[in-house]
Design a protein around this nucleic acid. Sequence first.
DNA 1: CTGTTAGCGCCTTCAT
DNA 2: ATGAAGGCGCTAACAG
Lengths: 340, 340
Amino acid sequence: MTASINDVARAAGVSASTVSRALRGRPGVSDEVRSQIAAVAAQLGYTASRSASSLASGRTYTIGVLVPYVGRWFFGTVLDAAEKVFSAAGYDVLLYNLGSAETRKRFFTRLPVRKRVDAVLSLLIPDDAESAALRSLGVPLATTVGGTRPGFTVVGIDDRAGTESAVRHLVNLGHRRIGMISGASGPLHWTTPIERRNAYLDVLADAGIEHDPALEADGDYTVEGGERAMTELLAASRPPTAVFAQSDEMAMGALRALRRHRLKVPEDVSVVGFDDHELADVVGLTTVAQPVAEQGAEAARLLLRQLDDPDAAPPAGQVQMPIRLVLRETTAPPRPRGPQ
Amino acid sequence: MTASINDVARAAGVSASTVSRALRGRPGVSDEVRSQIAAVAAQLGYTASRSASSLASGRTYTIGVLVPYVGRWFFGTVLDAAEKVFSAAGYDVLLYNLGSAETRKRFFTRLPVRKRVDAVLSLLIPDDAESAALRSLGVPLATTVGGTRPGFTVVGIDDRAGTESAVRHLVNLGHRRIGMISGASGPLHWTTPIERRNAYLDVLADAGIEHDPALEADGDYTVEGGERAMTELLAASRPPTAVFAQSDEMAMGALRALRRHRLKVPEDVSVVGFDDHELADVVGLTTVAQPVAEQGAEAARLLLRQLDDPDAAPPAGQVQMPIRLVLRETTAPPRPRGPQ
DNA sequence: CTGTTAGCGCCTTCAT
DNA sequence: ATGAAGGCGCTAACAG
């Protein structure tokens, strides 16, 4: 079997407490003894059992991360960045993939992270009951999605401003029939689609453009959904000359639909996305860039800070990250139209 | 504080042992008492402490998953699928993002998973010393990348066959100057690029095409690398009329480079990728499809099987998953050439 | 600076 | 079918 703390203590001729103190860099051990213990431990290949030390100390040195879809670029990127920050600080990451309603429900009723994590980073937006469940864990909480909520440190972007810059860009190019592909079919507590929609409506109103409900379609935040949504929009009696997609993945789906319909981008239809997906540049997509990895890293850092100093108040409101419109090749003025 | 097993025992008027047995579905508890205990536990919001039960039983119900880059589509997708299988079986996933040499080294020297996991799924290829370190954990091991290695259950694809189908496709279209973008710059124990290269060379030889070293470039498995590599190939005295990229991400980089050089795909240059990335279809990329999520799920299942029945021998050799060439729009016969 | 004494919360014999 | 005792490996007071 693997060596225990007592094996090390015996081999080093000291007590287990001293080994514990020495190995964790706590004061109260002479340098000589400390280095001696370190040598013995290394030689025996000793690593403290996390279970045992968690049980005794109450600290787990692990962070629970809740994700809706690990395979999706946005979440994978946030997770990647957050994990790096956590592991650099000596914390392990327990991953929970809660994409399906069933998995999600089981997670929140059984709450397997109870007594298992020192903090939770949620990349999904908990509803009120779920938030309460998380708060009942009594550990620091953070999220990189959705709006402010009690008990959570939230890192995010200004969805309104991002959307406005995208839609304004289309308006400025001269478009009047501007469609939107949203991702509204998810759970209601997911406010991002709503904020983006409101911003879209506001810009249209501002520009004196009447809103046409036939120019909105749901793309479910997936490539396939985006393709379906674009196909729907094209079937309208007066199809849009430009489309704002609430995510790059949906925008790419839209591009595919347009190509299948033999429509040219941007000559026939302009497309703007949201996120600046790693492949947006490959397809030349104009989009609203947000610092995805940075949001994960920042949320992780804020959580660690609260762990280091439990008295420090978590940042109030939302920590806002910068966004910017990246102009590429999928947007242009509308085709000149005949007399109307 | 949260309820402990003794709180439940007291509230139910039984002993802690009985609560333990009842909640874990072990025999020796009358149905009546069992359901009574379940009710009390639910009412108290009791969940057993994982640390305590691991310590007492030696089982952790946790799987360690090692990943080089969570944000990369391939790994994110494998991880996503594996996590679903594990969590459905009641296991938690501890994620280790070992992209940098430094992180990786620290992981294998400190081995933080020791005494913390019941099994390990590695999505990176451990070298001999690293494999030995993992074996020393004394738990089942599996991987979805690289070749067969002692002590590991390996799920993968036939890289040779996949590459052959891609390169043969180009040969059959009439191409003679076929370039390759590889991902060879990684660590040496990463055999995939080598296998694919050998298969590429074999197909050329078979077709009586002389190999031109100027037609090979390293794309580092990234979009940017693929773009650089393609740019390099185009600078050759006699550039290729077709290119096989060892991954879709590099192929997409190549497409971007070609677009920047105002070359038409497939008219001027044909491109084939490898993976069938979720966005390959969006850009119309011809590619070798492999069941990525399925590989993660299958590896997870095989691990669980070994956990259920420790006596069962792990599958010998490699569990091979099917591949197939997906024809899309980036490949065509070469332009007819003048007399030569 | 170092050792001793108690648990942390649960599971596992062994009794009954 | 149930309860009592012991211990998993470590950390946290408390003594010296």
